[in-house]
């Protein structure tokens, strides 16, 4: 009788696929949140060009970009930040451990940002001054989360 190796084998048979699945899931979550950020930056680029008065203000283009942005923002959620996906734990992650230490504050900051994106949706099609004002609030929403929860370059 060699109970220990048998037991170990049993554990590894059960645990290995689960671990591999977790790792793959974490990797996908990180890819997902990065993709989301890239898409949001793309829509923000249209709004920002107008805010900076580099491109002429176009209410329709601005309104569409803000709708897309708001839809994307509503997908961002704490579920995209599973345990084990912090910087140092997973490749390409910049998520700081504070996310899991202060989950309520983290969730609050995400919902603040979603609110700012919804306000942008209302402002973008109105006029340039409203868009510029909403841009500041939205930027503050992004920044307040990045300040505390993202690893600085």
């Amino acid at each position: 009788m060699r109970p220990i190796p048998a037991l170990a084998l049993t554990f590894s048979l059960v645990a290995l696929p689960a671990l591999a699945q977790d790792a793959r899931q974490i990797e996908r979550m990180i890819e997902g949140r990065h993709g989301l950020m890239t898409l949001m930056a793309y829509e923000l680029g249209k709004l920002g060009g107008m805010a900076k008065e580099e491109t002429p203000y176009d209410a329709e283009v601005a309104g569409d970009a803000a709708s897309n942005l708001s839809a994307l923002a509503s997908v961002l959620s704490p579920e995209l930040f599973p345990k084990g996906s912090a910087v140092g734990e997973a490749e390409d992650s910049e998520a700081l451990p504070a996310i899991w230490e202060k989950p309520d504050d983290f969730a609050q900051k995400i919902s603040d940002m979603e609110e700012a994106a919804a306000k942008m949706q209302a402002a973008a099609g109105t006029d340039l001054a409203s868009l510029q004002g909403a841009m500041r609030d939205l930027g503050a929403g992004c920044g307040s989360c990045h300040e505390t929860y993202r690893q600085k370059d």
Binding site: A41, G48, A51, K52, M135, R136, G139, S144, R150
Partner: peptide, 21 residues
């Protein structure tokens, strides 16, 4: 000027760390 207003970089990343403040 835009960065100092909204915190957005030209790539629409946002200011982090102490600069967000």
């Amino acid at each position: 000027a835009e960065y100092l207003s909204s915190g957005f970089t030209p790539e629409y990343d946002s200011a982090g760390g102490q600069m967000a403040d």
